[in-house]
Design a protein around this nucleic acid. Sequence first.
DNA 1: TTGTAGGCGTTATCAT
DNA 2: ATGATAACGCCTACAA
Lengths: 339, 339
Amino acid sequence: MVTIYDVARHAGVSAATVSRVLNGHVKVDPVLAGRVTDAVAQLGYRRNAVARNLRTSQTTLWAVIVSDVQNPFFTSMVRGIEDVALSAGYSVVLCNSDENPEKESNYIAAALAERMAGVVISPSSHRVDDVELLLQAGCPVVVIDRELAGISTDTVLVDNEHGAQIGTTHLADQGFRRIACIAGPRWLSTATQRLDGYGKALRAAGLPVDPALVRHADFRERGGYEAMASLLDDNAAAPPDAVFAANNLMTIGAMECLVERGIAVPSDVAIVGFDAIPWADLIRPTLTTVAQPTYEVGRRAAQLLVKRLAGPAEEPTHVVLPTALQIRASSIRVTARPR
Amino acid sequence: MVTIYDVARHAGVSAATVSRVLNGHVKVDPVLAGRVTDAVAQLGYRRNAVARNLRTSQTTLWAVIVSDVQNPFFTSMVRGIEDVALSAGYSVVLCNSDENPEKESNYIAAALAERMAGVVISPSSHRVDDVELLLQAGCPVVVIDRELAGISTDTVLVDNEHGAQIGTTHLADQGFRRIACIAGPRWLSTATQRLDGYGKALRAAGLPVDPALVRHADFRERGGYEAMASLLDDNAAAPPDAVFAANNLMTIGAMECLVERGIAVPSDVAIVGFDAIPWADLIRPTLTTVAQPTYEVGRRAAQLLVKRLAGPAEEPTHVVLPTALQIRASSIRVTARPR
DNA sequence: TTGTAGGCGTTATCAT
DNA sequence: ATGATAACGCCTACAA
């Protein structure tokens, strides 16, 4: 392993000078600097970031802890984070907690142990202990997508309640009367807010909120499938005529269940999903969704982190981005039902 | 920041003893050990991995550098890597090179600088310099999905040529005669092997290999879309009656182009794609694909890395996993064409 | 079994 | 402007 001492010897200068050349920002005689640069090239020297991090007690790495790398929502968001981070001189490493609080804990511990510069996290659990740990250690944190109760950090969320409301209202406006909801896990703010929006929309439309038409699932495809199956099985006498699914993967799962059972969409059951679905245009019928500005969520989160790393401690910022209803075929009422 | 010295003082022992308790594997008086454990808990001590890494010159972090986090192929693979890594005591951080050789370079530099334990990479470029760097530095590397010419590392690939061959042969068997190919970038082994398989299948079926029916694109959705458009525009006189698309995202793009132009699949143009497509069952028509064992690719790669980290240097292992044709609706010949 | 001391590779302080 | 030197927090001979 070649160190700055090797470079120094080879260039005929001191280690301190090598360090100064490497870091710039300090005046060094151009001649010496040239010798150093040459030596670096000849010896193939690469700075040891570990030693540097230890000495300076700061890193250039961000940990982005997402709750499901297989969900396109998060990967799109990650792109937003990366673009800002890279142009601010940071590198982003992605950690997949897989909706598993234990894995999440481990990654937070790793970020802490490795003294990473900052963390962007979409929490997999409602426990605040782990995030609290980061804060206590002075590690800047931006929480995205999911609210963490009783903790004060920079946050970037979307307007979940309103999004769910416009999605559900749209179904009510179309004339559907038994609108079911496939909600997310009870402990995620994202899920409860969307459920609230669903409820509000129903009440505003003068429709009853029937617990028999609500299922909680896990934000995964499988969960959406099973929730849909359960809704159909348990309401055989008076089946739902529409369903609002609280995230993208569950929407897919619900659709798969409907297709499998030969239930026509939207004529038998209409559907609106929360969050965009990749290649939604190829799915038949095309899916009405409540779109979130995913890339923008990442971008804003990264900007907050950059700001916090640069400047002194300020009050936490809370960003809430808007959602928008994208109406496609799956939610349109078919009055004359073809047979 | 609380260090082992603080813990030592608090527990009334030396720093060395604290270190020994923390690491286990060395006999320590249970009484002292207890005092240390208590002190750690009380002070909220967390080991500084940076210092530890510097001292021991080894890490517990793997860098997984993928060429596109937005491609479900890679995320599924990452899950395979994670599962093995975690159970072997390593943590996985994901780096997205975004098919961009420069970003890839940066991440490799970071992995090197941070002295990560090992690297799993699906190269974004055919340049071997960067990977060579890792090898020279003694950092174990496993290359996945894409072959790197002139470099000797553990590798996990799939049988691309054979996969492309069975996909194309299937189209020929169905009676299609003008089978186009949307190939990937010329410099990726994955792309050239699939193109070779396509060619072989045509020749075996007694069909001509017509350069006018081949397009190279970038393995992204947009690229597939444009390639399809170009195939249709440039062959207006004798359009293709089928197309083999060399990866999942390009298959999607091609489909979107066909749908947009009102070209019926498979009656006007049939399609077979390489690699699975999420919720392929919801797309109409359902898509015939050549499936790869994505999770298994990740798992095997991780196993190779674990082995190399554990044992002494051995000959590089090359794993090639099989592919399988999954026939769905998009490739089935419709003889009596409904109008 | 426990403690002392040196060093991992860098950067920052202090003279010069 | 440059060089010697100490220190970052930890681990590990070596000595006791």
